[in-house]
Computed example of a mutant assay.
Amino acid sequence: MQILVISGRSGSGKTTALNLLEDEGYTCIDNLPLSLLPALTEQIRKAHNPNTARLAIGIDARNIDGDLSVLPSLLESLKKDSDNFRILYLDTGKEVLLRRFSETRRKHPLSNKNTGLHEAISSEDLILAPIAALADVTIDTSNLNLHELRSAVKRQLIDNERDGIAITLTSFGFKFGVPVDSDFMFDVRCLPNPYWQAELRGYSGLEQPVINFLKDQDPVQQMAADIESFARKWIPSFEDNNRSYINIAIGCTGGMHRSVFLSEHIAACLRDNYKNVQTRHRQLSAKYMAPVR
């Protein structure tokens, strides 16, 4: 039986993740008290073929609060009952969460007449810390819209079941903060910057004028070769360690030109040997963001 535990901060996209998994054929249970988990897994085992049963369990601060001492043993029990057990943790920056709750006008589950939104978010972070530390997959949803979040969850949890290790190359801008879900991070701000070419400033690293400029720069080609060589050398070690995903983040100043070009270039090279290689361009998609829940 496959068991996925889905957790994360309120407002980070847990409901969206569970809805996607339900669409993919998982039996999804949300907000179940931790003490009922053993009985639930036993019931699913009896009602379904254990070889094909797939269960996704949503756990948030309301489940865990007061049960912290039993959490490790319960998760260990779930792991023993499953042929494929993973924990997905969805993280989001505090400022983004404040904006999302303001836009959706929803009440934070830990807020009340004595606890404001700021305090509720901080309290939830402490409550969820143990499960965040145990997570097999962490996705930062701060800069993802609804559709990008669904794609990220599917890429990390569903597609790699069929296509081996899932490799994501994420471009980003350092001035907007670094992605917290990266396994490796490369700083390419030392490379020639198309931004300072007036005729190229309005294009992105996906468009031909910038591509032509960067591919003719020797330092860019050397950096691309070095990152590709590093990835090819170490990805097999992650596969041998039963890792199902790896996220390689490449950052430049604004996340519009150099990091985008290099992410696409290296992804194209890695696709020669790996089936599941995706790119995500954080800053290019930021202006299309919609709240997730």
Rank of each mutant, 00 (worst) to 15 (best):
K14P: 02
K14A: 14
T15I: 12
T15W: 07
A17R: 03
A17P: 02
L18A: 10
L18F: 06
L18I: 07
N19L: 13
L20P: 01
L21E: 07
L21W: 00
E22I: 04
D23H: 08
D23P: 06
D23S: 11
E24T: 04
E24R: 01
E24W: 02
G25P: 00
G25S: 05
G25L: 03
G25N: 00
Y26K: 01
C28G: 04
C28Y: 00
I29G: 01
I29D: 04
I29S: 04
D30M: 02
D30P: 01
L32I: 09
L32T: 07
P33L: 05
P33A: 13
P33C: 12
L34H: 06
L34F: 03
S35N: 12
S35W: 01
S35E: 03
L36N: 01
L36G: 04
L37M: 01
L37I: 04
P38F: 00
A39R: 00
T41G: 03
E42W: 00
E42Y: 05
Q43K: 10
Q43A: 09
I44Y: 10
R45S: 09
K46Y: 05
K46E: 12
K46G: 12
A47P: 07
H48T: 14
N49I: 12
N49V: 13
N49K: 07
N51E: 14
N51L: 14
N51T: 13
T52H: 04
T52P: 05
A53I: 11
A53C: 12
L55T: 10
L55R: 13
L55W: 09
A56H: 05
A56P: 06
A56T: 02
I57P: 01
G58D: 10
I59S: 08
I59R: 04
I59N: 11
D60Q: 08
R62K: 07
R62S: 14
D65Y: 14
D65E: 15
G66M: 13
D67F: 14
L68P: 10
S69L: 15
S69G: 15
S69D: 15
